[in-house]
Design a protein around this nucleic acid. Structure first.
Lengths: 337, 337
DNA sequence: TTGTATGCGTTATCAG
DNA sequence: CTGATAACGCATACAA
């Protein structure tokens, strides 16, 4: 039929009313007499009229969209967060504008800016930019929220979850299994959660562990590539920056003929859906992605309403023990070096 | 500083020129004297001016956004497609508005419609709606493109790749390994590619195979859940609707103590990144996701330019043999039933 | 080369 | 309860 070019005035003309009335009807205002409203509805439906959200946006100053910036769309971890945000947003008649930065730190500010061109508010998920850059952005941009990033200033407001505890929990788990020397596969350099995780691993020395690290990254390929270097360190347990990284490590270990967990114990972090389907399934830490998505949308809603919600930190992280971790081998692998 | 509320007129006033001039400068038109342009640029930058794309959209009738609808964001298969589209779009100054239908067939038309409220054109990736619904949508909506869905009418135009051949190739591979009875794990009921795949499996009877099917779905959970039923059929090879499905099957087989490929051969479809990291790695078929994304954006670009590009079918699908397939076991498993 | 004026499709503020 | 009409921020034909 028609191609969506029907405007409010055509509906008005067809229905023999003013555009103001049509506008009111379309907004569902009760200030229109029922029968008139019904007639307008009918005409609009018949004509296939769809209000232009662009024009509405110009008039109201709100686009009905929230921008979301994530480092990598290919990391399953982000999906549930995004999905939950999208669900909440949809409930309130909002759409999501999703952009990925491809882990390019320097592009983040620009991408966020371009999001603002279309969206009423922006949510940065695990932004990698520096504290200074983030603070600057928060200062120049209103309605900005973060997930997994908390600044001392509390600006921008955001939501995060305690990643220190579950990582420390993983370390305790390894310590209890008799491991001593462990290697952390360092993830995204500027990721707040990554630094928190390493901080926890470092602290685990008080549990009797001897923490080391190798540079890797938050991807399968990065884990795979860093494995050989890690093996040089003579550890009995490897800790992946995240599950993706651990998957890569697992593959490389298998290629080398090393058994998990008999020769080496391995843990991930995030508990992505795949983690229970690797062989052996991954010991990891589950973080409340869905809850975070839900809560951050609630925050965004209040932000859009002009309020300034306080930052929140969730504390419900949880260690998931599966088959990839086991007792440290009797013969110390340290000799290998 | 300011909160993005600086408009073109403020820049104009500050720079002592008309808004028309500012507008021209911001669009990069050469019809403005260099020095004046430079001054305007400077003022705009200093004020932190960002043109409102909403207003621009109203004025020009184009929003600079393309809508993308995918069945599931959590299927890695879609990422590379989306990613590539996004890359091309970004090159041309467009943004992507991504929405997922959660495989809810009946929601697709509405979601597509809501996409049109913000976007200049819409790309439906693997839409599940009926041919009739799709044809109706194409008739009422201009600038609509499909990925992985071709109607006889050629409307809406789209891009697809030959999924029949690679699936037939997988079947030939199984036949050559001595398999006879195979089970196809049926994927999304209304998916065009899924039907194509089953058609290929069915046809493989001319290779000497005896094709059966079980209802599953395009997810890990679906594959996992359908495995027991498939085992009842006494086949020696399982063919997953896609890699996700195969991953679920693999896990269930492992739980049951069945070895892959010694007891049962297994194949997936799509070649998602995880497929080479399962144990054993998955034999599957690779389809040119990146190329499809690239090509469909080219099509969208010409569509936005008012042209009507013809549908395209790529033919570069490829079988990837990995460790999950092997010779059919000597003792026919058929006895099991 | 630059400025003026009009329109884009809605909302919202007034009157009536 | 309904109808004019002025914004909203920008692009653009038309003038100058």
């Amino acid at each position: 039929m028609a191609s969506g070019k029907i405007t409010i005035s055509e509906v008005a003309r067809e229905a023999g009313v003013s555009i103001a009335t049509v506008s009111r009807v379309m907004q569902g205002r009760l200030t229109v007499s029922p029968d008139l409203a019904a007639r307008v509805q009918e005409v609009a439906r018949h004509l296939g009229y769809q209000p232009s959200l662009v024009a509405r946006g110009l008039a109201t100053g709100s686009t009905g969209m929230v921008g979301i910036l994530v480092p990598q769309l290919s990391n399953p971890y982000f999906h549930e967060v995004i999905k939950t945000i999208g669900y909440g947003a949809g409930q309130d008649g909002f759409h999501m504008l999703v952009l990925e930065s491809n882990d390019l730190v320097e592009d983040e500010p620009d991408l966020a800016a371009s999001l603002y061109a279309h969206a009423d508010g922006v949510i940065l998920v695990s932004p990698r930019m520096s504290d200074e850059a983030l603070a600057r952005l928060a200062a120049s941009r209103p309605r900005l929220l973060c997930v997994h990033r908390v600044l001392r200033t509390g600006q921008p407001p955001g939501i995060a979850c305690d990643t220190f505890s579950p990582m420390f929990g993983l370390c305790r788990h390894l310590a209890e299994l008799g491991h001593r020397r462990v290697v952390y596969f360092y993830g995204a350099p500027f990721s707040w959660v990554n630094r928190e995780r390493w901080r926890a691993v470092e602290q685990s020395s008080i549990l009797g562990l001897e923490p080391l690290q190798v540079q890797a990254g938050p991807t399968i390929e990065a884990g795979y590539a860093a494995t050989d270097a890690a093996l040089e360190l003579g550890a009995t347990a490897f800790i992946g920056a995240n599950d993706l990284c651990a998957v890569g490590v697992l593959t490389r270990l298998r290629e080398l003929g090393l058994r998990v967990p008999d020769d080496i114990s391995l843990t991930g972090f995030d508990d992505i859906p795949f983690s229970r389907h690797t062989s052996p399934p991954l010991t990891t830490a589950q973080i409340p992605r869905a809850e975070m998505g839900e809560r951050v949308w609630q925050m965004m809603r209040s932000v859009l309403a002009g309020e300034t919600p306080p930052s929140q930190v969730l504390s419900t992280c949880q260690v998931i023990v599966r088959g990839s971790t086991g007792p440290a081998p009797a013969g110390a692998r340290g000799e290998r070096t």
